[in-house]
Design a protein around this nucleic acid. Structure first.
Length: 800
DNA sequence: GCCTGATTTCTACCA
DNA sequence: ACTGGTAGAAATCAGGCG
């Protein structure tokens, strides 16, 4: 037997003649596409037995039950842990992965059986956990090469003769990446796959080629066929799209069904299929939807491909790749404009490729650490990413995974926020507790398996008692979370040390950096996970106690800061702002670390920082001259650009030039421009997210009203969509004067609203701290009066 | 029916 | 479909007035 390399891209299972088999898809170290079979591994679940039950006896009953005999492969007694306690269990190995849930449910009702566990861990995932196999990671395996008797399009096929072993290998193989983007034609409203054609499919790949298939406008069967053929020939490892899980793939599949074209774009000649977390699986390849990753970039407020690409620096600011949904038909129908549409569509595919290249290192590292295949991990919400990581770690220490159940939601008290000292402060240092919550869980051993329920006696090793809430956690042995979190933090700090020794910008640097970022994401989400009612390991007191220790920690730190003579200006959760004083700060840091066993570190020092009276809002001037604006309108996605831009300049003037007078002047000029119609239309659009279905809103709001209008026009709008609207002239409430931005004209706009409720509101937030009133910010005269400014109210007349 | 202040609803932010 | 704390706008409610 020979050892072979495997870089794992995808893992799935098939049933062949009723026998399940695991298929590992990937590449070897020579770049060949390989498929590796494991026909031996079988799915299983656990039966947890009553303390006084006899495992032998129950095992026999399971084995001999005629209802089970055909489905059960074997039963063995094993000792596992559940919430840290040793329990007697039976491992029931099944023949068919589709039957585990049903079998578990039947057997859990047997006498002497408390419950079943882990029947809901899917077969392929089970395999990768148990065999220590990692997506986006290298392995060595021993296998026998066999003839490719499947329909799989790969270079080599192997049967495993020994399980794969993960190996350390930082470089990623050279993967073939293909991106695609489709254009669907609908005269009016959202294209409907039951009647509207796919008129353009554009593709790009990382070999520098682009390709486009265009319909003649009468059917799209040909386009679909060409697309499928192209994918088959190119045989990409990764297919990237933007919004492809929710839109492109479902659309293509439906069109394919209607046109009689089988979308066999995967490596086993089947069609893409819906899978976990709303993701579409393409067997043998990784189908990634970059829109999923846009969620991780909270700086990008409206998550269009164009905005993402520009943020990532793979598209120039002046480049346009989008055609508004509402205008697609227009472009298609006009022979001249159609050229633009075709060009932008290719450009879009190329942009998707560029974005994928810039995100792929991170995505692959996340996949590798979490242990979910590359394409699933993006689609999985943060809570599930943490959970799959935990599940893998639990397996390693013999801890069984709790079943997901419905927990009632009771909120608990969280962090402390100090009221800031309003105004401008010079030289202010920000001090941060490093990963405060994870470290609290480590220091106080707070974990689902160390929690001691009320009424239970203290264990001999002693307990940590959380302040205020008084929850107890055993000091020994180290809990599940403590182990997991210490590992994550330790691995990350090693990575950071390695990074310093690695050449900046090199491929290895990018991978290591992506890895440490992925670890950070998981670590930082761990506290939130403990308080999530949907979590498998949800134990409310763990979250509540961690928060309580957090409050204690920052309170105590502030006391120590004051004792040391530091001037505390503001604080929030795990950080606080003090007047710069390196000597006292040094003393203070040592005191904190000594007393609290938590590391606290100076972060930035602002040359100047500005606070209003509000918490969670401030603006600081960094030593390099940049502004850091936190929480204020500038940082928000639901204010018109006009107000944000104005406020940013005001803050800049205040912090750099320290001249409120100049800022006032600036605001006046700004308002003049608005009144004179010099502000771009797009800067007057307000964007808000639909957080629930349109019908479920209890009150009328502008964005919901705008959404309803769009819906009447035939556009699909769902939860999570951003609605762009403008306020127009007229009578009544805002929601009675709103239009989706695509349905309004500039001269309909209520500029008074933008002046008062957007610009002035955002300006006064800053300038009221310098004694300014709204009236001070208004221009003294209005040259724009005659052309288009509506004098709608007495108030408006007065200001003129 | 109109005005006003209090309360509720909603979104998006910070840590 | 990770947590709680928070600001702020707008809608809506409740009560007074007449």
């Amino acid at each position: 037997m020979v050892w072979h390399h495997l870089f794992l891209l995808d893992i799935n299972h098939e049933k062949v003649n009723g026998e399940p088999e695991i298929r590992l898809w990937g590449l070897d170290d020579t770049g060949r596409r390989i498929l590796v079979f494991d026909k031996v591994f079988r799915p299983y679940f656990y039966l947890v037995l009553e303390d006084d039950a006899d495992p032998e006896d129950i095992g026999r009953r399971v084995r001999e039950d005629r209802d089970f005999i055909a489905s059960v492969e074997s039963v063995e007694a094993v000792n596992r842990r559940y919430f840290g306690k040793s329990v007697k269990t039976l491992r029931v190995v099944c023949r068919d992965p589709d039957e585990t849930a049903k079998l578990a449910s039947h057997m859990s009702k047997m006498k002497g059986v408390k419950m079943s566990l882990e029947e809901d861990i899917r077969y392929a995932q089970r395999y990768s956990i148990d065999k220590d196999v990692y997506p986006c990671g290298w392995h060595l395996f021993e296998g026998k090469e066999v003839k490719n008797e499947t329909s799989a399009s790969v270079d080599k096929v192997y049967f495993l003769t020994a399980p794969p072993k993960p190996i350390e290998k930082a470089e990623t193989p050279s993967l073939k990446i293909m991106s695609f983007s489709i254009v669907c034609y609908s005269k009016k409203g959202s294209p409907k796959p039951d009647r509207n054609l796919v008129v353009i499919v554009s593709m790009a790949n990382n070999r520098g080629e682009t390709k486009q298939f265009v319909s003649k406008g009468t059917d799209d069967g040909g386009v679909l066929k060409s697309f499928v053929k192209y994918v088959e020939e190119l045989d990409p490892d990764i297919i990237a799209g933007y919004g492809s899980n929710s839109h492109d793939w479902p659309y293509l599949l439906e069109r394919g069904k209607r046109a009689g074209v089988k979308l066999s774009v995967d490596r086993s000649r089947t069609e893409p299929h819906p899978s976990l977390y709303g993701h579409i699986s393409i067997t043998g390849r990784a189908n990634i939807d970059l829109y999923n990753y846009a969620e991780d970039f909270e700086e990008v407020k409206v998550k269009t491909l164009e905005n993402m690409a520009k943020y990532l620096g793979v598209l120039k600011d002046e480049e346009e790749i989008e055609v508004e949904d509402a205008e697609v038909a227009d472009y298609w129908d006009d022979p001249l404009k159609r050229q633009t549409l075709l060009q932008r569509s290719v450009k879009k595919a190329e942009t998707i490729l560029r974005v994928s290249e810039s995100l792929l290192d991170y995505a692959m590292q996340l996949s590798n650490i979490v242990g979910l295949p590359l394409d699933y991990v993006g689609a999985a919400a943060v809570g599930f990413r943490v959970e799959w990581y935990l599940i893998r770690q639990a397996y390693k220490i013999g801890e069984m995974v709790p079943s997901r159940k419905e927990n009632p939601y009771f909120p608990y008290v969280g962090a402390i926020v100090l009221a800031p000292k309003p105004g401008i402060h010079e030289n202010v240092s920000v001090l941060d507790f490093k990963s405060m919550y994870p470290n609290i869980m480590i220091v106080y051993n707070a974990s689902p398996d160390t929690y001691i329920e009320p009424g239970e006696p203290d264990p001999p090793g002693g307990v940590f008692v959380a302040p205020e809430v008084k929850h107890r956690f055993r000091k020994e042995p180290p809990g599940f979370y403590k182990q997991v979190l210490s590992d994550l933090i330790r691995i990350r700090s090693h990575l950071k040390i390695d990074l310093e020794k690695t050449k900046l910008g090199s491929a290895e640097y990018k991978v290591l950096d992506a890895r440490q970022r992925a670890i950070k994401v998981i670590t930082n989400a761990s506290y939130g996970y403990t308080g999530w009612v949907g979590a498998r390991w949800y134990i409310r007191p763990v979250a509540e106690a961690t928060a309580a220790w957090g409050r204690y920690t920052i309170k105590r730190a502030i006391e120590l800061a004051k004792e040391t003579g530091l001037d505390v200006i503001y604080g929030d959760t795990d950080s606080f702002f003090v007047k710069y004083d390196p000597k006292k700060t040094g003393t203070f840091l040592r005191k904190v670390e000594h007393e609290l066993s938590l590391e606290i570190r100076p972060d930035v020092t602002y040359e100047r920082v500005f606070f209003t009276e509000a918490k969670k809002r401030y603006a600081g001037l960094l030593p390099d001259g940049r502004l850091e604006i936190v929480g204020m309108e500038v940082a928000r996605g639901d204010w018109a650009e006009v107000a944000k831009h104005m406020q940013e300049r005001v803050l800049e003037i205040i912090l750099k030039e320290q001249s409120p007078e100049k800022a006032v002047d600036f605001v006046r000029w700004y308002i003049m421009d608005l009144r004179n119609g010099k502000v771009t239309y797009s800067d007057l659009i307000v964007w808000k997210t639909l957080t629930k279905p349109v019908e479920e809103y209890k009150v009328n709001t502008p964005h919901v009203e705008a959404a309803k209008m769009l819906r009447k026009e035939g556009w699909n709008l769902t939860i999570g969509d951003k609605v762009g609207f403008v306020i127009i002239k007229g009578k009544g409430r805002l929601y009675e004067r709103v239009l989706p931005y695509s349905l309004a004209k500039y001269d309909q706009l209520d500029l008074e609203y933008y002046e008062e409720q957007q610009i002035l509101a955002a300006a006064i937030r800053v300038l009221s701290l310098f004694g300014k009133k709204e009236d001070d910010l208004k221009p003294r005269y209005s040259p724009g009066l005659s052309n288009g400014i509506r004098l709608g109210s007495e108030k408006q007349l007065r200001l003129m």
